[in-house]
Simulated assay, not measured.
Amino acid sequence: MIKLNVQDETSRLKAVILGTAKSCGPIPKIEDAYDPKSAEHIKAGTYPLEKDMVAEMEALNAIFEKYNVKVYRPKVIEDYNQIFSRDIAFVIDNKLIKSNILPDREKEIEAIQYILDTIDPANVVETSDDVHFEGGDVMLWKNYIFIGTYKGEDYADIITARTNMKGVNFIKELFPNKIVKEFDLVKSNTNAKKNALHLDCCFQPVGKDKAIIHKEGFRNEEDYNFLVNLFGKENLFHISADEMYQMFSNVFSISNEVVVSEKNFTRLNTWLREQGFIVEEVPYAEIAKQEGLLRCSTMPLIRE
């Protein structure tokens, strides 16, 4: 049996589900793209190739092996994108909460059923279809649960809006002892530089007291100021719209000391090392073309 335990984003990782790029299917039609960045690369003829994405994920897998992390992989479904395991479920404390994912992606949860079968069923939580959240929008820090959402009246028309207020309130009820704080994120179906697909696309804590942040990812400046006050401005690494687009905030922590980052993120990686972090660099630029990076393709099950 897997004994789930995730209290935060940065404690020592023991077990994780890492997505797979194997048999991820043909290049999607432009009208089937789920986000503006994928659409851009489909149009430009630069959409990532399966072999390149498989190689990138294996590079990440090798880092996990180096740190003795137990890695689970989804069963491979033919011609199906299963890279972003963070979207389909997430763990808070000892509970695994299944997301209500975009209908086209429902098979992804079936591919990890063999893992779910080893978890106490009392700790696997499902919701009704009108409650929306994805793991990229849910982030744990001390006694807080940070949740990215979108409060615009056009929520139903915005394919990049993945977590609604019903989702936020569901988490509030499930964890009455935590402080649940939602953040209203900037969304765009068409402009990838003005679209925070999930909270982890514009913010993420690293180590014990630092974080990466993109101010313009928040619709409400008060939400940004809340994080500045909580972390202290000197502890925040601010990223530009272009750096957000490249997914600078979507790194992944193996521990409070070790951060896995994309090898081209020179400015960020230099800052992390200056703060005393060990930075494990991997190539992930092809996967980034689908508007997701390291945090998006991992789903921690156990952190110490």
Rank of each mutant, 00 (worst) to 15 (best):
A59L: 06
S253A: 11
M57V: 06
K142E: 14
Y155P: 08
I63S: 00
N250W: 08
N269M: 05
I112M: 02
F277A: 01
K37R: 15
V186D: 01
P205T: 00
D209H: 00
F237C: 02
K51L: 06
S255F: 08
D184G: 12
F90L: 12
I27L: 13
F237W: 03
S128A: 10
V125G: 07
T10C: 13
G19E: 10
D79N: 15
Y80F: 15
A156K: 15
E262I: 15
P205I: 01
E106T: 10
P205H: 00
K107D: 14
Y47A: 03
Y284S: 12
E58G: 04
I171G: 05
F265C: 03
F146W: 13
P48M: 04
L96D: 14
R73W: 01
I101Q: 06
K22C: 09
M165Y: 14
E173A: 14
E291T: 10
K75E: 11
H238M: 02
K70Q: 07
S128P: 00
N220S: 09
E257R: 11
E50T: 09
E274S: 05
G148L: 05
E108W: 12
G276K: 06
S23A: 12
G232R: 06
R273C: 09
L49M: 04
M247S: 06
I27D: 06
V186K: 12
F248I: 03
K193S: 09
K14A: 14
F170D: 08
L96H: 02
N164E: 03
F265D: 06
T160D: 03
